[in-house]
Design a protein around this nucleic acid. Structure first.
Lengths: 231, 231
DNA sequence: GAGTGGTCTAGACCACTCT
DNA sequence: GAGTGGTCTAGACCACTCG
């Protein structure tokens, strides 16, 4: 019993989501049925389901059932978008400008994606009427075929990744720096040159632990802030 | 059965830690003994213990036992101190200067602490030889009697809180802004005026959900960054 | 070998949701 | 009322740690 049985259940469910067998919002079998199907008891199936719920991959509701989590554009979006107003409320961004191009990967991207070509998504976003977010995302072309033709892309990219490509983002590592606004920032954002900005370098990983997006964002915090909870 | 039995076990253990009955590093009874003592089965006791482990309040090791987590100065410290080097390694700060004073609480502090008097801890800290962190912490005097006489305080305040006052920090909410270095910053840190800094406003909560510290930190990120993982 | 946490089972009952 | 997740039990065996 080197590998626990619940791990097998866990992996099986992930594989079904990745393969598209279970799409966003799909209902899973009950604990008992799933256990019978995979040859384990209800308690063991339950342990795997609870772990997947805690990772945000499944949603469970007493009396209703277990469902693949749906990344809805305006609700779950804020899990990975951390800008908040002074009172803690969510600051919904609006897409102001967008350019999607196909280009060769940089050395760093090649190392992370194990792939030579990427789509680059350059976007300006506004909050409360002011353009204060500049974002450059890079994704490997092989995972997102035809992405360039879908522009303009929706506000919440991760909902698109999930619904159109079956790629579910599970984790994002971010590195924050304080920087000064450059000419590139000023060209896109409503800020004077030299304003203090937070620069965020993000590495996004999906549920099968592939790095699927690299993103560089620059925020003018002003009245807003970047909010985190450490536990 | 409005309140689950495992919740009672959970609360009982927290109460014992808060009361000092279980100090840092203390060993808890085994799952079976704890269950027998509180009148629940091993599985129910286990559920509470696992939840406390996941919150970082207990540490469990197969074959050894269950222990109250120890906030060791140089290991667990980095859970709440997020500055990292470019390669992701932990950047240990050194205390450069410190002033501890007793003063009346501001309106905001009074609201959060429900108390009128605080200790203010003003510290400058250096990393890799350069003073690039300025921190102002405020804690209610009633929870930390005699704190002013303990100066200079250790590098890791939360280890002190735990070991000398039995206060275990469980969660910290942080709000980040990009700002420019002021004269106050320049007086304490090795930075030119106008340098971009990250300002962090932290609210720290202990295991019984009391707000026990408010902290304002200003970091020169430079070669370093503030690292977060979103899940 | 004794004691601990980690996994697993088979079955029970409760609380909730929907029709 | 049927079906779902949530809680709980009593007991079993495995894997690890330490004297």
């Amino acid at each position: 019993m080197t590998v626990p049985l619940y791990q097998h259940v866990y992996d099986t469910i992930i594989a079904r989501i990745v393969s598209g067998d279970l799409g966003p919002g799909a209902m899973l079998p009950s604990e008992i049925d799933l256990g019978r199907e995979l040859g384990v008891s209800q308690g063991t199936a339950r342990k795997a389901l609870s772990a997947l719920e805690q990772r945000g991959i499944l949603q469970r509701r007493q009396g209703r059932g277990t469902f693949v989590a749906t990344t809805t554009p305006e609700s779950d979006h804020f899990h990975f978008f951390r800008l908040r107003r002074a009172d803690g409320s969510e600051a919904t961004p609006t897409l102001e400008s967008e350019t999607v191009t196909r280009r060769a990967a940089t050395a760093y991207e090649k190392e992370k994606f194990s792939e030579g070509e990427v789509f680059e998504i350059l976007r300006g976003r506004s909050i409360d009427g002011k353009t204060i977010v500049r974002e450059i995302s890079a994704v490997p072309t092989s995972l997102f075929p035809g992405l360039v033709d879908r522009s303009p892309l929706p506000n919440a990219l991760y909902a698109l990744y999930q619904q159109s490509y079956g790629i579910v983002i599970a984790e994002a590592d971010e590195q924050l720096h304080a920087v000064l606004a450059t000419e590139d920032d000023v060209a896109m954002m409503n800020v004077p040159i030299g304003s203090p900005l937070i620069e965020v370098r993000r590495t996004a990983t999906d549920i099968s632990d592939r790095i699927v997006e690299l993103r560089l964002s620059r925020y003018l915090t002003g009245d807003l802030h970047y909010a985190v909870t450490l536990r």
